[in-house]
Amino acid sequence: MALALQQLINGLTLGAVYGLIAIGYTMVYGIIGMINFAHGDIYMVSAFIAVTGFTLLAALGVSSVPLALLVVLVVSVLFTSVYGWAVERTAYRPLRGSTRLAPLISAIGMSIFLQNMVQLTQGARVKPIAPVLIGGFDLLTIDDFTVHLAYSQVLIILVTVALMLAFTFVINRTSFGRQQRACEQDRTMTALLGIDVDRTISFTFMLGAMLAAVAGVLVTVYYGVVDFYIGFVVGIKAFTAAVFGGIGSLPGAMLGAILNGLIEAFWVAYLPPEYKDVATFAILILVLMFRPSGLLGRPEVEKV
């Protein structure tokens, strides 16, 4: 019972991180119909910026945790959104209008490029940082097992919920959100109403990168270690979450990510932990077999 509660907390935390990244996948898929495989590496870049930021601030003698967090978040979000913009501008925009596969392959190339760039400039070794946020709440104890809720977990869940709300508002209620949805439904017509579609796509990439940046900072705070390869597995899992929930659907991505996080956490608790990735991807296969459009996705109806 206590273990289940603990894993519920851990699963939600993990799901929140996946969710922040999954939004980037699903949004880009919605607007230009491609899977941005470099998105996981954008997240990795942000984690490295966070490590650099925290180390620098510590060296400068900034001891206030909230201040350090805020500064690192802002800096990381700014830099990472520039990365998101640059990736789209250099690797995808020139290929717009060519075959569907071309940008996909370009995305894989961009992913390898980012990994190698970070490996070359930062080294291949795992980078640890001094714990930023220590401590937490002991919720309850049953049979010597104490359910622990770390401050970093509270931070992750609160920040994620707040960002999701803000993000939903941006998409549903603001001018940019309307343009973004219009591009999703009919890019040609959107352009003919005077909307700069290329700019809307750039903004979409930047917005996705910003959310991934927040995820990168939060994970750095949570685990305290990064290496150049973390983007791959987390990226693939977030992508799985997006497909699970129905790719192209924003609430679907959030739901899929939370389910993914919970499945992983509970699998680790009760079943052989080495197979936790197998569990995630087995579920992906099952979803694709029996509900190819995902949990909340609507099947695409080809118009005649």
């Binding site: 040609t188 352009a191 003919l192 109403l193 005077g194 909307i195 700069d196 579609v197």
Partner: peptide, 12 residues
């Protein structure tokens, strides 16, 4: 460009 036809020239 397509979008300028509407936004600058006001041709729809």
């Amino acid at each position: 460009d397509s979008h300028q036809v509407a936004s600058r020239a006001q041709v729809v």
